[in-house]
Amino acid sequence: MASQGTKRSYEQMETDGERQNATEIRASVGKMIDGIGRFYIQMCTELKLSDYEGRLIQNSLTIERMVLSAFDERRNKYLEEHPSAGKDPKKTGGPIYKRVDRKWMRELVLYDKEEIRRIWRQANNGDDATAGLTHMMIWHSNLNDTTYQRTRALVRTGMDPRMCSLMQGSTLPRRSGAAGAAVKGVGTMVMELIRMIKRGINDRNFWRGENGRKTRSAYERMCNILKGKFQTAAQRAMMDQVRESRNPGNAEIEDLIFLARSALILRGSVAHKSCLPACVYGPAVASGYDFEKEGYSLVGIDPFKLLQNSQVYSLIRPNENPAHKSQLVWMACNSAAFEDLRVLSFIRGTKVSPRGKLSTRGVQIASNENMDAMESSTLELRSRYWAIRTRSGGNTNQQRASAGQISVQPAFSVQRNLPFDKPTIMAAFTGNTEGRTSDMRAEIIRMMEGAKPEEMSFQGRGVFELSDERAANPIVPSFDMSNEGSYFFGDNAEEYDN
């Protein structure tokens, strides 16, 4: 993207840094990872977990959730003011799984939030270390993106479920800051804005008074975040219109849905970061690795190297396929839920299948599930090659597409044709070009129609051997075009429920 120079890199967003050079960025990201790792080690000690239990991804998720809940100030305040039966607002906890007599047992633990905050700050040299908290939120978000298709949420806001490739980060909490905003897809931002506008339509006082002023500035800020994701002048001009509207209503909703559809071809720039579970960072720190000293990046080879040398386990339900569970977590670790499966298959070195073909449910185990038949197995999170994460949407291309997802959002900077089903997408653009945004709409449609099938995206960008740390010898991959490109292809993934 041309304006790259004016933006802070995501590592800076990730670490609240002012302008830093590459070495400083690597050190501050490393410091953040160190903090998460030290916190995780301490929690495993508190909970008396064995090494194996500490490497269980379900335990990692519970521990991450506990610290996120302990620092969720708004919710904590709300819980104190609106006490609900049987919930102690000062405590947080969740299921911890232990191996007892050759069987997995679930144990519900409860801790004072104050105590968890103390352990977290102690692991982070006394700081609140917001960057580390956001990092864990993005890992949870990436896992949700890989596990669930947001059909219901899309339909509720009037969008087409086939636009799911635009929904990265749709389950990120509001408090995820600049680093969170960077990884949100165009569809996620559109959905947040539509929800806001709908509230304004239904509630006369939404934009009024002292609160209304705050609401208005939040609305304009979200519009600017979305505008910054678009790469064409016409899309940005249309966002200006939406932002400046005196009284946002149905016309703005129409414009936003139009823009979301246009992003299936004229893709937005959305950041991709490899955020790993805390149970990967903990053992690495415990083994003596100093992330701050060595430096770390979320968008280069580092996460690949770390996963190459990590042992992570997962509980497996009786009829689940461990290899499929591994694929789910591998995609989440690489922030690749909406990437082209052919690119992923090449990088991973084994075939990556669409969601609907995987015999696996989510990673988390519900409290009512029976533990008797639970097994555990090693997650295979290694890769054959590594590639640089991208934040450009890439230019655009036609490809055989599917009944489910009709476009992709690249996660890796790797040369390819970008699949999208042009006739299906263009069919949504018939007729409606009147109104105050008509010239911009016409211009956007013209650009979409001009998108050429034979153009290559990320020209000359390749993948790298894991021994090639400096990215000196790019390998331009070859793809098996007979395979499906979309992950949520004609899909039956479970729906995400809060």
Rank of each mutant, 00 (worst) to 15 (best):
G185S: 00
T171W: 10
N417D: 08
E495P: 09
E495R: 07
S262R: 09
K293N: 13
G177K: 13
G431I: 07
A427T: 15
D372M: 03
N417F: 00
R441P: 13
G295D: 10
N211S: 15
S269L: 13
K48H: 06
A442H: 00
S383P: 07
S367H: 01
A337K: 08
I253P: 10
G435R: 09
I445H: 10
D51V: 00
M32I: 04
T350A: 02
R436S: 13
G132W: 06
L379A: 04
I265C: 02
G462N: 10
S274L: 10
N309L: 00
S170V: 08
I197K: 09
G169N: 05
A323N: 01
E254D: 14
P283V: 00
I25N: 05
F429M: 03
K325D: 11
A237L: 15
M1E: 10
D127N: 05
T360A: 12
R389D: 12
C333Q: 05
P453A: 06
K214C: 08
A129I: 00
K91E: 08
D421H: 15
D34H: 01
Q149L: 13
T134Y: 04
V299H: 10
R267Y: 12
Y496I: 03
Q308A: 00
R267S: 14
E220Y: 11
T23G: 01
S3A: 00
L172H: 14
P277D: 07
E80S: 05
R391H: 08
K229P: 03
P354I: 07
R461H: 08
Y296Q: 12
C333M: 02
G490R: 12
S486Y: 05
A336N: 06
E114L: 01
L256C: 13
K113S: 03
L47P: 07
D101C: 06
R317G: 15
K227D: 11
Q415W: 14
L47V: 01
N483V: 12
L193W: 04
Y281D: 09
Q399R: 15
S269A: 02
M43T: 03
L47K: 13
G485N: 15
W139S: 01
S359F: 12
T6G: 11
S314A: 00
D439H: 13
M456P: 13
Q168V: 13
T130V: 03
P89W: 04
S50P: 03
T146W: 12
